[in-house]
Design a binder for these strands. Structure first.
Lengths: 212, 212
DNA sequence: CTACCTTGTCAACCAGCGGGACGCACCCTG
DNA sequence: CAGGGTGCGTCCCGCTGGTTGACAAGGTAG
């Protein structure tokens, strides 16, 4: 920032080189194209050709980036999930002094944002055989693993002294609960989050410490 | 937006195809790389190799995108200028009912934002032969033309009934005045803008109409 | 059962980038 | 003024990466 002559650029956020950025852009474009398509048709009715041409690129390029249709669908779901997990991170960071409240706020944020998201609604209504719903349920292990890892990282950042095994167990359980509540909503988000907090409270106190 | 089955996607902001987006990204990366470099060295001390490698790309790719060093420098200046012109647009749109005030606010916004911009300060202090300053002064025609065209479009959007020739004259004059005031600042932005408003007021009333 | 469509793969083709080298102009120095 | 150094602009060659066209396999509708 300073215009002083002798200042060293140092490690100041090294600019992402073009090739890497281009690859990222390609994937983003595919995801965006898929999202557009999903607004009018179900996933089972969208062909790989559709996605590729909507991205302005050939089908083979799509297959090179993602090996198969399922792989792409999975990557897409995870990509969309990032958005919600970002919100979760934020919610957690606002309650670093109170683990129970953090979990409650995080779960509530997730349920609320996901519940209101039009794309999520579409995915949930698409329960056919070739749809995307199985990707988070019957074939949902990759998503669960990914979300668990990400949530684990978030928690460990907030409570570094907590035992890793317990944090991971907590994270995975929360992920599974969250997915369940999305696919089969019970009460309103606040109530659901409160009940989860009650259920997991003792374990949270034990794992993360009741005083942080 | 609606999830209704029969809705037609229509002309809803067609997604930018990847190849085009990639090209845009390449240019952006070059500009960003140049901006980074300019924070530590003058333009005359930055080689094309520096820019290319900072962008993570070969020198030839840079030469293919921009024919020569000067062309790149010009494109860069214009690219940076976009930022300020955006602010000008905004200022104009807030005073559609009062042409004089619009011009004053626009000029003031430009002078203020450009005057505070660290990059502009650097460019201005780099008055050597190989620097970028000539691009907006002695060899500044391309920049003047570009900025005039853009400003003309902005004004015509706000006052469609104004005679084009007068609008263009006004735009070009404003551009030249603005550049002059940037390179050789006189009073504070508010005073400068006020004086310009006084100077051009009669012409503005005549061209754009005193009541819009 | 047939006709059609999509998936996933392959091979041949082609544009575009990377790397290396060259001539040229310029500047600096002795 | 001569010589070395440096950066610009260009050319050429090798290769990565996207495109095109085609194909077998599988599933589905008629």
């Amino acid at each position: 920032m300073t215009a002083t002559a002798g200042t060293i650029p140092a490690v100041a956020t090294t600019r992402t080189p073009y090739p890497e950025a281009a690859r990222q852009l390609l994937r983003e474009t595919f995801f965006g194209a898929a999202r557009d398509q999903l607004e009018s048709r179900a996933w089972s009715e969208i062909t790989m050709s559709d996605v590729a041409s909507a991205a302005g690129v050939s089908r083979q390029t799509l297959y090179k980036e993602f090996g198969s249709r399922d792989e792409f669908a999975q990557a897409f779901v995870i990509h969309e999930g990032e958005r919600f997990l970002d919100g979760v991170d934020e919610a957690v960071k606002e309650h670093l002094d109170d683990p129970r409240a953090a979990v409650g706020a995080a779960l509530q944020a997730f349920l609320r944002s996901a519940g209101e998201d039009p794309l999520v609604r579409i995915l949930l209504s698409d329960d056919g055989a070739g749809g995307m719903l199985p990707l988070v349920t019957t074939q949902g292990m990759p998503v669960v693993h990914w979300a668990t890892a990400r949530l684990t990282a978030t928690i460990e950042e907030g409570w570094p002294q907590a035992p890793e095994a317990k944090v991971e167990l907590l994270a995975e359980s929360l992920v599974r609960l969250a997915i369940s509540y999305i696919t089969a909503p019970g009460d309103a988000p606040e109530k659901t989050a409160a009940k989860a907090g009650e259920l997991l409270g003792p374990f949270i106190d034990d794992a993360l410490g009741s005083v942080g």
